[in-house]
Amino acid sequence: MVNHGLQRIPRFQAENLEHNKTVFERVNDMATKMGCTPGQLALAWVHHQGSDVCPIPGTTKIENFDQNIGALSIKLTPEEMTELESFASAEAVKGDRYAGGTAFTWMESDTPPLSSWTSE
């Protein structure tokens, strides 16, 4: 069954799909080598971005929740971070994430820096 909604997303259009499948295969291979799922590898990567970054994955299934929690035990070396970023960076993926090229993201937000937060 083909999801026709995906055909409108530039990343899934024919001119980008083959390249992006290769990116996924490399992420999948790295995850297999590390003994985790690609999703766990992605969450682990986010965890390694700094103490002021925390992924908030959504799920409705306990098995997915358990996999998400499992990402906390994945420790990436600086070399593994560099390897992953070399083929899975935003610049490496072809095609916009959303149809029309824009969507509201963290880049357009006014979140104050962590250093300005208080615990009153």
Score class of each variant (00 low, 15 high):
M1P: 06
V2H: 01
V2D: 08
V2P: 06
N3R: 01
H4G: 00
H4T: 00
L6D: 09
Q7G: 01
Q7I: 00
R8H: 13
R8K: 15
I9N: 11
R11E: 03
F12S: 00
A14M: 04
E15H: 01
H19Q: 08
H19M: 06
H19N: 08
N20L: 03
N20F: 02
K21Y: 12
V23G: 03
V23W: 03
V23D: 04
V23P: 04
F24G: 02
F24T: 00
F24Y: 14
E25K: 09
V27H: 06
N28A: 10
D29L: 09
D29E: 15
D29F: 02
M30V: 05
M30K: 07
M30T: 07
A31S: 08
A31K: 05
T32K: 14
T32L: 10
T32Y: 14
T32E: 11
K33Y: 07
M34F: 15
G35V: 02
G35H: 03
C36P: 04
T37N: 13
P38M: 04
A42Y: 07
L43W: 05
L43F: 15
A44L: 10
H47I: 12
H47N: 07
H48S: 13
Q49L: 15
Q49T: 04
Q49Y: 12
G50D: 07
S51I: 07
S51Q: 11
D52W: 11
D52F: 13
C54A: 14
C54K: 10
C54L: 15
P55Y: 06
G58S: 08
G58P: 02
T60L: 08
T60M: 10
T60V: 08
I62W: 14
I62D: 09
I62T: 13
E63K: 13
N64F: 13
N64C: 08
N64Q: 15
F65T: 07
D66V: 10
Q67V: 00
G70Y: 10
G70D: 11
A71W: 02
A71K: 00
L72Y: 11
I74M: 08
I74P: 04
K75D: 15
K75G: 12
L76D: 07
T77E: 12
P78Y: 07
P78T: 05
E80D: 14
E80F: 06
M81I: 15
T82K: 11
T82I: 07
E83G: 05
L84P: 03
L84N: 06
L84T: 02
E85G: 07
E85Y: 03
E85K: 03
S86G: 13
S86D: 09
F87H: 04
F87M: 08
F87W: 08
A88Q: 03
A88R: 04
S89T: 01
S89C: 11
A92H: 06
G95H: 01
D96Y: 01
D96E: 14
R97H: 00
A99L: 02
A99T: 03
G101K: 00
G101H: 01
T102A: 09
A103C: 06
F104W: 14
F104A: 12
F104I: 10
W106V: 05
W106M: 14
W106N: 12
E108N: 03
D110V: 02
D110A: 11
T111L: 15
T111Y: 15
T111I: 14
T111D: 14
P113A: 13
L114M: 15
L114C: 11
S115M: 10
S115L: 09
S116N: 09
S116F: 05
W117R: 09
S119H: 13
E120P: 15
